[in-house]
Amino acid sequence: MSDTAVVVSMFERIGGTVTIDRLVESFYRRMDELPEAACIRAMHPSDLDPTKQVLKRYLTEWTGGAKLYSVEKGHPRLRQRHMGFPIGSAERDAWLLCMRGALDETVADGAARQELDVALSRLADWMRNQAGNPHDAGGHPA
């Protein structure tokens, strides 16, 4: 018997490539269908297939799967890559609405789903680049 703990990546916990694929498809389907997501859908090209592939590669690597994103694109630099898009609280909230619905639909493990929600919420909050209220990036309380 070994005292060595087995570390299981989030990628493995949620079901690997199959779940990542389903998650991304669900996310973009929601972006297309939900009126609340129109503000972020407008930032994307009409053909979402290339964007879906990038997000699948990113999420695979981000959750501990194969390094598919950085091999092709280098360091994610997500905030820098998204600076050309105005991202405020409304855009963050729309993105999270789509992502949370996709997580609920595709990730069966409740604890893993909650951990992902916390991490993705932090990421979405950090991506804001528009001032609006004291809690937005660039806004400063008086």
Rank of each mutant, 00 (worst) to 15 (best):
residue 2 S to A: 12
residue 5 A to V: 12
residue 6 V to R: 08
residue 10 M to A: 10
residue 11 F to H: 15
residue 12 E to L: 06
residue 15 G to I: 08
residue 15 G to Y: 11
residue 19 T to G: 11
residue 20 I to E: 12
residue 20 I to C: 09
residue 22 R to F: 04
residue 24 V to D: 11
residue 25 E to A: 15
residue 27 F to Q: 06
residue 28 Y to R: 09
residue 29 R to Q: 14
residue 30 R to I: 11
residue 30 R to N: 15
residue 31 M to W: 09
residue 31 M to K: 07
residue 31 M to D: 06
residue 33 E to D: 14
residue 37 A to S: 00
residue 38 A to E: 03
residue 38 A to S: 01
residue 40 I to T: 00
residue 40 I to F: 00
residue 41 R to F: 03
residue 42 A to E: 07
residue 42 A to W: 03
residue 45 P to M: 09
residue 47 D to I: 07
residue 47 D to W: 03
residue 53 Q to E: 12
residue 53 Q to F: 02
residue 54 V to Q: 06
residue 55 L to H: 06
residue 59 L to F: 15
residue 62 W to A: 15
residue 62 W to E: 14
residue 63 T to C: 15
residue 64 G to C: 11
residue 66 A to W: 02
residue 67 K to R: 14
residue 68 L to N: 07
residue 71 V to G: 13
residue 71 V to S: 11
residue 77 R to P: 01
residue 79 R to P: 13
residue 80 Q to S: 13
residue 81 R to L: 05
residue 81 R to W: 01
residue 82 H to T: 04
residue 83 M to I: 06
residue 84 G to R: 09
residue 87 I to K: 01
residue 87 I to Q: 02
residue 92 R to G: 05
residue 93 D to A: 13
residue 96 L to R: 03
residue 96 L to S: 03
residue 98 C to S: 05
residue 99 M to H: 02
residue 101 G to V: 00
residue 103 L to F: 08
residue 103 L to G: 03
residue 105 E to S: 02
residue 108 A to Y: 04
residue 112 A to V: 12
residue 113 R to N: 03
residue 113 R to M: 10
residue 113 R to K: 08
residue 114 Q to L: 08
residue 114 Q to H: 02
residue 115 E to I: 02
residue 118 V to W: 07
residue 119 A to S: 13
residue 120 L to C: 04
residue 121 S to T: 08
residue 121 S to N: 04
residue 123 L to D: 01
residue 123 L to Y: 00
residue 124 A to W: 00
residue 125 D to R: 03
residue 127 M to T: 01
